[in-house]
Design a binder for these strands. Structure first.
Lengths: 160, 160
DNA sequence: CGCCTATACTTGAATGCTCAAGCACCCGAA
DNA sequence: TTCGGGTGCTTGAGCATTCAAGTATAGGCG
């Protein structure tokens, strides 16, 4: 090995791309947060819960299942569900097969809310953003994001 | 049936890439948050303030300047600075040229903290992530992120 | 059966962020 | 010069998230 730098460094191209990626990440977060707050009066994180419920085949999911899909802590979801139940977007019943678990389901109002927010999100954010990329870039992005995801959960494994 | 959908939709490739991008974004956030919390005992957002101060040529920046660079609200920064001043990472003096403004500066401890956190972030996150991409992908990512950023602040302009 | 650990979720306190007000200062125009 | 609007920052209240406990059920193993 030629030399072992005491601190590993990124080459210029990678440093540059990382910086831009960070900006893009922050920008996307901001814009999504704002849209959901404006159209739904709730944080983006809450909307994600509604979306996974909407996508569930039986229309019902265990809380722990939702936690897993969204990388939420049980506590976070618990607080969120209390709020969303109060607001009437979600209902909760205890799982007949497991006394510890609860099943979440969208109320009719909840489903209506998703159907109000979702198309706007597509029209105002996803379309403009993804539409700005050409077909080749879309493929590239897909591959890059997949690679990043692999690298990341490699990291998560290292922590333990 | 080839009808004109009343709601604009994304083609499958773009929908797929968007989904993966969202996952990657969330994953990156989580991993950065965890690292800074672990190594610095503070939220990643606070660390960003330290970083921009560290990078400032004179070692000093106006709060409004920091707000601008990080897209922070004045309120958010104000709360953050109070905490970081209490913790001894940052000092604040009023701008001699403008009685309304304050100048922020890293304390020696603050600088030391950045120098403790930063190389770990490179070693544990940026290197593994960016290193997983080949040179072509790095260029592609840079271009894609730039395009996304353009699309996003096109959106911000629309809002007003 | 009776324990023992693991799993599913809840709760309350502490922290960070947002939002709406408010204060202090700058600056241009009358 | 003083008035008025704009800028820079602070404050306090309310919401979201985290963290550390705590409760309750499930499921295995003696």
């Amino acid at each position: 090995m030629p030399d072992a730098p005491s601190r590993p460094a990124l080459d210029a191209a990678r440093a540059q791309a990382w910086r831009r990626l960070m900006f893009a990440v922050q920008g996307l977060d901001e814009v999504l947060e704002r849209q959901v707050q404006r159209d739904g009066g709730m944080p983006h994180a809450y909307y994600k819960v509604l979306v996974v419920l909407d996508a569930a085949p039986d229309g019902e999911l265990r809380m722990s299942e939702v936690c897993g899909r969204l990388h939420f802590s049980p506590s976070r979801l618990s607080h969120a569900v209390r709020r969303m139940e109060d607001d009437g977007w979600v209902s909760r019943r205890s799982d007949p097969d497991d006394g510890r678990a609860f099943l979440l389901r969208l109320t009719d109002e909840g489903r209506a809310l998703v159907e109000r927010i979702s198309p706007r999100q597509v029209a105002e954010i996803r379309m403009p953003v993804m539409g700005a990329l050409d077909d080749a870039q879309v493929e590239q992005l897909d591959a890059i994001a997949a690679t990043i995801l692999d690298a990341i959960d490699g990291l998560a494994a290292d922590d333990c």
